[in-house]
Design a protein around this nucleic acid. Structure first.
Length: 840
RNA sequence: GCGGACGUGGCGAAAUGGUAGACGCAGCAGACUUAAAAUCUGCUAUCCAACUGGGUGUGCGGGUUCGAGUCCCGCCGUCCGCACCA
């Protein structure tokens, strides 16, 4: 080898073309090898790949390439989550068509991805905006419709006034739209819903088996679904209001039912609405309640307020016991039944409320140690013995709950029930750039599904975005059709599906994409579930919950055999970068500043600059780096190496100029080492042999555990040793094996070296070198010698030396003797092959 | 408020209860060079000591243990998620 420098500009594109031409990474459905489906979350085609994508896809790529080397048939696909608002915004701002804008972006982003040399099966690529994809999605939607999992209802929805569309609960964050950040309003609209709540229990249960998922994500989903068990029962109103004669309440603490001192209903409760019609004060109070924000800060400071309706209800266990009914600002209509009974002694909110309105506070749970002590400012929510509760007295909390539920059911005034925080998934969006909902509305027949043979319902292309709102609603020829059932004039549903539906099954379509149906169940069975899914933590609830639901829904319809789509999930950290600011607060990009002594100054005029926090890359803070530019400068392999180095993959990775320089130097260092095969060298070098096989073993384990930073460190250690070792047959072997070891990480460099070593095929098709297990065990070990737990000496001995001999050697140490200083040795702890601890 | 994660050099970080700081970055010194770049060699937690050596040290305070970054209890701090959830 005469080239002294590795030239990525030439090598990268050469090998990328070879992989393409040979379709090296095409996954074979019929391969006899064990299968492994490696998937990263597919990108939204916003226009440019960002560095976060590079990190995400590099991790997946290393695993995919490594699994190929260990004999797997790997499915590693890529596609485009191509529907969504930004395309319409671009259409409005720039007068382009969403389709053209999206496809242009896909083309340029695909070119960017190709430059990084990812081992992707591009033959399976699709965009969710392709009619071939969304047509099958429409078919699946109709399957669910027929299966009773879809319904339409008029409901108060979250309306984003900026995006002019409805949002699902999951898409409202702190009362604001997840995309636009606009304050969300409540509106009444007829919407399509998916019955995700039918699966609430399953979705919680299923989390238990997902041991390849981060605990954190499982916890977040469990909290989101929010299961509560308790009693639902009806209070009888003492005197009906119009046709309302009961108030239904839910409680997780039926054991405290004798501690009740009031009943509170939400401002939007049907009874409150009824009363508001006749009573202006109640109406005004309700308006006041609705105005209250739900943001964290508001709730902290919000005073518990109520309005005494003057009505009373009868206690279910004592008809003569009457409780006042309040409209209260802390009761929410969209949780439970929108009404509660208040037990001030054992619920802090109820206590605050009771103190304010001078309602009785009766302790009904005695606390161990405190007994029946009166409740002051703090409600008691812990366990204990029931008191002041007639037939419940003396029971524990759990037994009392069950007793009350049993009695309610026996007497017919209530039932044990489970409620969830999770709402059904509202999927209607008043947008153009999405999957058209394949329904026709007919005066005669109602909502009629479009017959399957008429799918896909394609989006019309002749639309304009010069007026706000949904162009489909204004499209006369598209909107007006004949009813598929009766043939009368009818109108199409003009709402489109939430784009999260697109990403709820794309992994199925990657695995199997026949023309005539969404997927083939038998082919799916070969690939699913996804062995390793990698993406950002920001999808912990939205996408990952929807995808789990959609898969379970398909399973319930007999369409798939898999229950959980993603066997293992990994959430990677962000790529961050230092920020810089002028005194006036404006941001500078890192290449616009330089260090002057210990201070930072602007390159342009030398004025002082403040070095700020290391933060997530964002255009507004000017701390972004463009993947294209750094690939131009350093080549794909150096960029990939940097993405894997130093930081554990679940943590944030601080981007630095010095870091990428270091990776570039290492790529060159490897290249030089690959040139150091000495054809005349002979003889074994035991240290090199051992290090090589320990590295083969360790790196394999680290890659499987996605601990890329540790794998990288082990490779450095091997390289450091091999470089320093004199020529030998062992050294030559190690250098050759190194090409395979780094192949998953720096594939272009590896192919180049592999070819120069005269191999016929590609290193991409080469196996992981065999590991000689006998070399994993050291024959010499270093024993730590401690005196009273403090290190005093180390001794090198043969592995497996007996306790007695180790003890003798340790005590013979001069340093040990000096440390003991004549004191009596009370005990000697010996851990063979590890240490000796002399206790005095 | 509830739930969770985390806290180790100048920085990113390693470490089945068994030699804390592997590996990388940055830095310092040196070699090569007319010079620079590139490359190579050595040093690099901290304090005392010229050296041998010794003390201290994984957010803080306790505990268990022959031995604790790791396990237990209590604080402090940072980050994340949820939140008037009945």
């Amino acid at each position: 080898m005469t080239d002294t420098r590795f030239n990525p500009l030439a090598a990268d594109s050469r090998w990328q073309k070879v992989w393409d031409d040979r379709q090296t990474f095409r996954a074979d459905d019929n391969s006899p090898r064990p299968r492994s489906y490696v998937l990263e979350m597919f990108p939204y085609p916003s226009g440019r790949i960002h560095i976060g994508h590079v990190r995400n896809y590099t991790m997946g790529d290393v695993l995919a390439r490594f699994r190929r080397m260990t004999g797997h048939e790997v499915l590693h696909p890529m596609g485009w989550d191509a529907f969504g608002m930004p395309a319409e915004n671009a259409a409005m701002e720039k007068g382009v068509h969403p389709s053209g804008w999206t496809h242009d972006n896909i083309a340029s982003m695909k070119a960017q991805l190709k430059r990084l040399g990812f081992a992707l099966d591009w033959t399976r690529e699709f965009a969710t905006c392709d009619p071939e994809y969304y047509g099958h999605e429409q078919a699946l939607f109709l399957e669910m419709f027929e299966g009773g999992l879809v319904y339409r209802k008029e409901s108060a929805v979250n309306w984003d006034p900026v995006d002019m569309t409805v949002l699902a609960n999951e898409q409202v964050i702190d009362g604001k739209g997840w995309r636009s950040g606009a304050e969300v309003e409540k509106r009444k609209l007829s919407q399509w819903f998916l019955k995700i709540t039918d699966f609430a229990d399953e979705l919680i249960e299923g989390l238990g088996a997902l041991d390849g998922w981060p605990e954190k994500v499982r916890m977040m989903q469990e909290n989101w679904i929010g299961k509560s068990q308790g009693l639902t029962f009806r209070f009888k109103l003492n005197g009906p209001v119009q046709d309302i004669d009961t108030i239904e309440v839910f409680s997780t603490r039926p054991d405290t039912i004798f501690g009740a001192s009031f009943c509170a209903i939400a401002a939007d409760h049907p009874l409150a609405l009824q009363l508001a019609q006749e009573n202006a004060d109640i109406a005004a109070f309700a308006v006041d309640c609705r105005r209250t924000g739900t943001a964290a800060a508001d709730i902290e400071t919000q005073e518990k307020k109520g309005f005494d309706t003057g009505l009373t209800v009868a206690h279910p266990l004592d008809a003569d016991w009457h409780l006042p009914v309040f409209v209260a600002n802390f009761v929410l209509m969209d949780y439970g039944t929108g009404a509660v009974f208040g037990v001030p002694a054992h619920d802090q909110r109820d206590l605050d409320f009771a103190r304010k309105y001078m309602l009785p506070v009766t302790r009904v749970v005695a606390q161990e140690g405190e007994g029946e002590a009166a409740i002051h400012d703090e409600a008691y929510t812990g366990p204990g013995q029931i008191i002041n509760s007639r037939f419940l007295d003396g029971m524990g909390v759990g037994a009392a709950k069950q007793t009350v539920i049993d009695r309610a059911e026996a007497e017919g005034w209530g039932t044990g029930s489970t409620i969830y925080r999770l709402r059904d998934w509202g999927v209607s969006r008043q947008r153009y750039w999405g999957t058209p909902i394949p329904i026709v509305h007919c005066q005669q027949c109602g909502a009629v599904p479009v017959p399957k043979d008429q799918l896909p319902v394609k989006l019309p292309e002749d639309v304009t975005f010069d007026v706000p709102g949904n162009p489909l609603e204004r499209h006369e020829t598209w909107k007006h059709v004949d009813c598929p059932k009766c043939g009368q004039a009818a109108t199409r549903e003009t709402d489109t599906l939430d784009t999260f539906i697109n990403s709820s099954w794309y992994f199925l379509r990657f695995a199997s994409q026949p023309d005539d149906k969404p997927f083939d169940k038998d082919v799916l069975a070969k690939w699913m579930p996804v062995a390793q899914y990698i993406g950002g933590i920001e999808h912990a609830i939205l996408h990952l919950l929807y995808a789990r639901f959609w898969t379970r829904a398909l399973k319930s319809l007999g369409k798939v055999d898999v229950v959980e789509p993603f066997a293992s999930l990994f959430t990677q950290g962000m790529v961050t970068h230092q920020t810089f600011q002028y005194g006036d607060g404006s941001w500078l990009s890192p290449d616009q500043v330089q260090k002057n002594g210990i201070d930072w100054v602007a390159v342009s005029d030398g004025s002082p600059v403040t070095a700020g926090r290391v933060e997530k890359m964002s255009k507004s803070k000017k701390n972004v780096v463009d993947p294209d530019e750094i690939v131009d400068q350093y080549g794909a392999d150096a960029v990939r190496w940097f993405m894997l180095s130093d930081s554990p993959p679940e943590r944030d990775l601080p981007w630095s100029e010095a870091g990428i320089e270091g990776s570039w130097r290492f790529v060159q260092r490897l290249w030089r080492l690959f040139g150091q095969i000495d054809a005349n060298a002979t003889g074994e070098d035991n240290a090199v042999d051992r290090k090589l096989h320990q590295t083969l073993h360790g790196v394999a384990e680290d890659i499987e555990a996605l601990s890329f930073n540790k794998a990288v460190a082990k490779i450095y250690e091997l390289v450091n040793l091999v470089e320093k070792s004199p020529a030998s047959a062992s050294r030559n072997a190690a250098i050759k094996a190194l090409v395979q070891i780094v192949a998953p990480m720096t594939p272009h460099l590896a192919e180049e070296a592999w070819a120069k070593f005269g191999h016929n095929g590609l290193v991409a098709d080469a196996p992981w070198p065999d590991i000689d297990k006998s070399l994993l065990i050291e024959d010499q070990v270093t024993i730590a010698v401690q005196v009273k737990g403090k290190l005093r000496d180390t001794i090198n001995v043969a592995k497996g030396m007996h306790r007695e001999q180790l003890e003798k050697l340790a005590l013979a140490s001069e340093k040990v003797q000096r440390s003991i200083d004549g004191a009596e040795v009370r005990k000697v702890i010996v851990v063979p092959d590890r240490l000796v601890n002399v206790v005095i």
